[in-house]
Design a protein around this nucleic acid. Structure first.
Length: 543
DNA sequence: TAGGAAGGGTAAGTCATGGA
DNA sequence: TCCATGACTTACCCTTCCTA
């Protein structure tokens, strides 16, 4: 990195260098370029309305068809796609007064007379656009005219904030307390039990976090590759807001930041930092591997201090543990469908998001991004709903999933709670998964009798070498029924062949020894009886 | 398609138990 | 009482899965 910077600074066309503390007139970073491009601005407030407000409602799932007709958004495509078939009563656009404080359109103010340079200055660094043009000339391809995209114009529900660092395109929507994603109420996430989430996440650091101050985060990016070339162009956030109240308590705020042009990330990242600083924890889906590493890279690339390290609940791993037995794919879309009971209609698939944004950048066509904005908001709200479910699993998850919860709690060492949930899983028809979980938990608690019963029931139901191995151990060491143990081993256990042979040989030896002991005792008893005396004492049960 | 977290399998270490 | 063996835990490595 540093060597690259050094090479760059030696290029005569790049001016005197790129360091922050360069001499006046030397360093002109992207931020300055962006400000220049925007020019002197006067902020005029306006309310999101028309198609923009319609879009905000649409991704929130309110009255899909009528709104589409009313706004004239083409049906069937990503832009016109209704978010869901299942119920998701939600959401109002941001309040008028707040919007009025922030929503802007741009109008020029009286230009200021230019200041003439009085002394020779270093050659100006070219802007990004100029560099692009140079590169295009070099490679012999014409530079296509790039329309300036303006997501506040009509279709997208964003408003423009002029921050100190540059323009920030924001969409903010509030969910009503009664809002649901499928059958799951959002408000349940507010009351989720932090200790339970920490156990399920196998992360004690989350135990002390205030779930009410959790920040839900999802990004849409220009690709999967990561590294320096991938840019998050849409960041979706959600948090619980006590000020949003109504029937059923308080609601959630969903906030999205859109990158209108590459190179304008600074304001977005700074706002994200503010949100992170206020949060007690963040919640993502695969964010530990994808979103957060990517965002950290963007902070570095924008010469910003790294974002604050907040305890991180990544739902993807929790979902894998809980739904392992039931769901083959544990994508967020699959969970939304199978667990929350919500079906997205007309959603923009992840694979098309990159092309949609590229099209928006090239053409300025906002309609291309509508589906992406909806997709992002739907993802964030699905995470909220899942936290509500996982934070209070009893009564909201089906038996098979409860078995997954119980098994995870066993791994976390919360055996009492695990046993309670395993019981519930069995009672709710959790099947083999529930029996296995209850058996494993009983064994871990030292309740071998309970474990034996569950494993026996399980062995009668499924063909599982692991269950037979567990039964073989219990028969040998707890019941001391070597014949039954041997029977299990002969049916095959989840061991290597040599280990299985050793076990078999040991059990056979024990059986022979036990038989010998019986014979000896019988002879001894017969002798004693023949002598007219009878000795007391415990008789060991022979297998 | 890349990167990262977690799961699963295997080996090594520690503790408990049975047998001589 | 000591030794051998098994069960369980921990650490490491490879594979799988998820994100746009």
């Amino acid at each position: 990195m540093s060597s690259f910077k050094a090479k760059l600074s030696r290029l005569p066309s790049m001016g005197g260098g790129m360091s922050r503390g360069g001499a006046p007139g030397e360093a002109r970073g992207d931020k300055e370029t962006a400000e220049e491009a925007a020019g002197p601005l006067r902020v005029v407030t306006r309310e999101p309305e028309g198609a923009a407000a319609g879009a905000a409602r649409r991704w929130a799932g309110i009255d899909e068809a009528p709104i589409e007709e009313g706004t004239g958004v083409p049906a069937g495509g990503a832009a016109g796609g209704a978010v869901e078939a299942a119920a998701m009563t939600l959401v109002t656009p941001v309040g008028a007064e707040e919007a009025a404080a922030r929503v802007t359109s741009v109008a020029p103010v009286t230009p200021v007379a230019p200041v003439m340079p009085v002394a020779p200055v270093a050659p100006e660094r070219p802007s990004l656009d100029e560099l692009r043009e140079r590169i295009a000339r070099i490679v012999g391809r014409g530079m296509p005219a790039t329309p300036r995209a303006d997501p506040t114009r009509e279709e997208l529900p964003f408003f423009l904030e002029q921050t100190e660092e540059g323009p920030l395109y924001t969409n903010r929507v509030r969910s009503l307390p009664a809002a649901r994603v499928g059958r799951a109420p959002l408000v349940a996430a507010r009351d989720a039990e932090g200790a339970m989430l920490a156990l399920l996440a196998l992360d004690p650091a989350l135990a002390g976090c205030d779930v009410r101050r959790a920040l839900y985060l999802d990004t849409e990016t220009t690709g999967l590759a990561g590294g320096t070339g991938t840019v998050p162009f849409l960041i979706g956030l959600a948090w619980f807001d006590e000020e949003v109240s109504g029937e059923g308590g308080s609601g959630f705020v969903v906030e999205q930041f859109l990158l209108r042009r590459l190179g304008e990330e600074g304001p977005m990242l700074r706002r994200l930092r503010e949100r992170l600083e206020k949060a007690s924890m963040i919640v993502t889906y695969n964010g530990k591997a994808f979103d957060m590493p990517l965002l950290r890279t963007r902070f570095v690339m924008n010469r910003l201090p790294p974002p604050p390290e907040v305890p991180h609940l990544d739902l993807v791993h929790m979902a894998r543990r809980i739904h392992k037995g039931r769901l083959k794919t544990r994508t967020l879309i699959a969970l939304e469908h199978e667990v929350l009971g919500r079906v997205r209609v007309g959603d923009t698939p992840g694979g098309e998001i990159v092309q949609a944004y590229a099209h928006f950048l090239r053409s300025g066509d906002e309609g291309a991004l509508l589906g992406v904005v909806e997709h992002n908001a739907a993802d964030v709200l699905a995470m909220v709903a899942l936290v509500g479910l996982y934070g209070e699993p009893l009564g909201s998850l089906i038996g098979e999933d409860l078995a997954g919860v119980a098994a995870t709690l066993r791994r976390a060492g919360a055996l009492e709670r695990a046993a309670e949930l395993a019981e519930a899983a069995v009672a709710q028809g959790g099947g083999a998964a529930a029996l296995r979980a209850r058996g494993d938990i009983a064994r871990a608690r030292g309740d071998r009798a309970r474990a034996l019963k569950d494993y026996e029931a399980l062995a009668a139901e499924v063909d599982d070498a692991g269950v037979r191995l567990a039964l073989a151990k219990l028969y040998e060491h707890h019941v001391r029924s070597f014949a039954k143990a041997l029977e299990m081993v002969e049916q095959g256990t989840a061991e290597t062949d040599p280990a299985q042979e050793r076990r078999k040989a040991r059990l056979q030896k024990k059986m022979e020894r036990a038989a010998g002991a019986v014979a000896t005792r019988a002879a001894s008893v017969a002798g004693a009886e023949g002598g007219g005396s009878r000795r007391g004492g415990r008789r060991r049960q022979v297998p």
